[in-house]
Design a protein around this nucleic acid. Structure first.
Lengths: 209, 209
DNA sequence: TTTAATAGGGATGAGACCATCCCGATTTTC
DNA sequence: GAAAATCGGGATGGTCTCATCCCTATTAAA
């Protein structure tokens, strides 16, 4: 059974990262640590398969590159058999190389890091030995979330709202079907259901319906 | 129907904040913007009731206090009727006062900002006119997340794992019952079910079972 | 003008989760 | 020793989501 540890001080981000890890493994337990002290204690008592680290932790000088390296180095030494993934808000390719040299298997910038990347990152690691994803601004349209929609409905509304011009709806339904292993007709049915809900309740619809 | 906008460049954090807002309102639509440009476009075309802003956006100098103020000021002026909540990773009480003076209704530090705070923040705003929550390190034990558990099971395992010494399980069940409006016996049943699942599958249990 | 795509639904079974009720056995606490 | 707490479940009904099947108009593309 897969065991992971996420070290990140911002609670919402830590929980999000834990969810990302969970989504990548069938059966796993994920621990979350807010501080280095908590993480160190758990690293002593457990063997982890994966450790996710944000080196910008409280109590450290955020501008000190030495501190950032020292944090990751300490974690890597405390869990030599684990895969180490560094996640940071202030990423650059120079630091990525530094972390790679001390044993990190991935370096991810937080900006533009979307849900679902973790499995891709793990694929990168197993094929190339390292995964690098620097922050980049990728979004041109906003995200829309409606509390009245079920998760499935929300997902296909997301996909349809970000549809590139000229792409047919049928193609989106097919992509959805492929992604989630369902029928394209079902995806279409969800979309119709979702749009009807929003219209009934007077919600403003995203451009491109 | 309640309308909100979340401006935050880190995707996972933006989605988490959008979820927080959704959880605070029965029926709402929440838009997420990665950049100021997207946000500005939406502010022109919509009237929002709530705008959540992280002033540390890409393209700006993160060390420039002038930039941070200017960002929030611009958003506030573009949506004068909305409630404005500032969320930042690098928070301090001086900056909080600055934002308060230009019209922000809340100033929240990301570290230690737990799920479920938004309704408390909104309560603060409606009673005191302003809500201030600076970052603080609050955790002494790690979080545990198990993919085999249902949400309800996970929640009560969380509560039980963070139980203070000397507190009886019955009290936790009562707290859970109070928080979610269910029976204390049901909470106990969930706990038993959850623990049995973890034991069957050989998961390492948190201290305090 | 024929074909493909889109709009706008009804109905249904399977499965998951929620919440509750019940039971007996063991351990801890007063 | 008696009372309270804890352990370890079985069984059930209700609700929601998922995924699929079906149907008829209307609109756009070839």
């Amino acid at each position: 059974m897969f065991r992971a540890l996420v070290i990140e001080d911002q609670t919402l981000m830590r929980l999000a990262l834990m969810n990302e890890v969970q989504a990548s493994f069938e059966d796993c337990s994920v621990l979350g640590a807010e501080t280095l002290e908590i993480a160190a204690g758990e690293l002593q008592n457990n063997n982890f398969d994966l450790v996710v680290i944000d080196p910008g932790l409280p109590g450290l000088d955020p501008t000190s590159q030495t501190d950032r390296i020292a944090v990751v180095d300490k974690i890597v030494e405390a869990s030599p058999s684990a895969i180490h993934v560094v996640v940071t808000g202030s990423d650059n390719s120079f630091e990525a190389e530094e972390f790679r040299q001390i044993g990190a298997a991935a370096y991810l910038g937080k900006t533009g890091l979307p849900p679902g990347v973790f499995s891709d990152v793990l694929d990168d690691i197993s094929t190339n030995g390292f995964s690098l994803r620097l922050s980049r601004v990728a979004m041109t349209k906003p995200d829309y979330r409606y509390s009245v929609l079920t998760p499935r409905e929300q997902e296909i509304i997301d996909l349809m709202a970000h549809r590139a011009p000229g792409v047919k709806r049928k193609e989106i339904f097919a992509a959805m079907a492929d992604r989630f292993g369902i029928d394209a007709g079902s995806a279409e049915r969800y979309f119709k259901q979702a749009r009807a809900k929003l219209m009934r309740q007077g919600h403003p619809l995203p451009r491109g319906l």
